[in-house]
Write a protein that binds this DNA or RNA. Structure first.
Lengths: 214, 214
DNA sequence: GTCTATATTTTGATAGAC
DNA sequence: GTCTATCAAAATATAGAC
């Protein structure tokens, strides 16, 4: 029970992923393959609506075989949302180190977040759909809340510098800004081309608006 | 099976709601009460994660009693998302009648949509979370798609008029715009004050951007 | 309008052989 | 790494009394 909050043994996978080492050539499936199929299904049907048997069928194995790779359904979700949170928190940490006006740090955070969303699309998608039913989900919501708080702080700072309009409530602006960013998960597809260009579009609309200037 | 796509007998409720006639004073629960509790639970825990027994407990009755009011779980979802879709489509229809530049019609649609989201917050929340698992959900997704297509058409028109920046892909702009609008369901609360003011904020950011102008 | 059964499936998970 | 067999719990839904 305390297990789902621990780092867990799945960090082996995360480490392997970071190092770009794809998978070992053994027959059958490994954790990576199981996780990939699970994430895909969770996104298609929703986490709750996906049964371990659905996952087994997708993998072409039996339900019980899955338990050789993970302790249960929740662990699959935990690994996935952790991937998303780690990347977003890393982006935030980098931005916080910058010596620049708040509005520039904020814009950089927006661009970096778009990139993270594009690169880890399925993980971030799952993260943003988490509702808080289980301990795993509540922990994820908590980390999101911390992130959101830092965004609001950036907006406040930029307003004090006079760089962001003062006629909007900072928390609302922060939420709308990242509401726009996060909405990418609803339609972005890697085929759709460069995430960098998309980041430009998002930043342009968010900071300068849709309207033409004369 | 064909039933879930029919208008269904629950249109009595919808009619009563439109007329502002709240509920009949009989003892026990009516469809409206059951629907209200269901919607609340679907939002808290997710549709799939909510069992009919959860709903029964929340209402203080037994599971089987629910089937006196509705044919099943899916019907509850159908009534709810229909409420949201009807309101959004009505807003679109009204805007389409306006004799005004496309950008003004688009801005009006944004404002009206914010109001709809605020007024029917829980229904729209459910609508935006629909994944397409069942026939009910697929029908809802289809109606959303039509709505989105009309938004994109408005953006294109406004670009041709030179009112909206031409350096963004219309479909992307439309999606980001309503991504921002729709993100309201994640945090808006009626207590948070007027929806009209919020609509102003959304329109200001979307059309003129966060950045201060000198 | 609500109840007490009850039917029938499906769920997440385990034990132990290969 | 996968299998068969099995489990206990939980799911949606129905029948029929009050």
């Amino acid at each position: 029970m305390t297990r789902e909050l621990d780092p867990g043994p799945a960090e082996e996978l995360i480490r392997r992923m970071k190092e770009g080492r794809p998978r070992r050539g053994r027959p059958g499936h490994d954790l990576e393959a199981v996780l990939g199929a699970a994430v895909q299904l969770f996104i298609e049907r929703g986490y709750e609506a996906t049964s371990m048997d659905d996952l087994a069928k997708r993998l072409g194995i039996t339900k019980s075989s899955i338990y050789h790779h993970v302790t249960g359904k929740q662990e699959l979700l935990r690994i996935a949302v952790d991937q998303a949170l780690n990347a977003l928190e890393e982006a935030m940490a980098e931005v916080e180190l910058l010596q620049a006006p708040a509005i520039e740090r904020l814009e950089m955070l927006v661009r970096r977040s778009v990139i993270v969303l594009a690169e880890r699309l399925s993980y971030v998608t799952l993260l943003l759909r988490v509702r808080g039913n289980t301990a795993v989900e509540q922990q994820a919501l908590l980390r999101r809340k911390v992130f959101d708080g830092k965004v609001t702080a950036l907006v406040v700072e930029a307003q004090l510098e006079g760089a962001i309009r003062g006629d909007v409530i900072a928390a609302n602006a922060a939420r709308l800004l990242f509401g726009m960013v996060n909405s990418l998960i609803e339609w972005y597809s890697p085929k759709r081309g460069g995430a960098a260009e998309l980041a430009d579009t998002v930043a342009a609309i968010a900071f300068d608006g849709l309207r033409t200037r004369q």
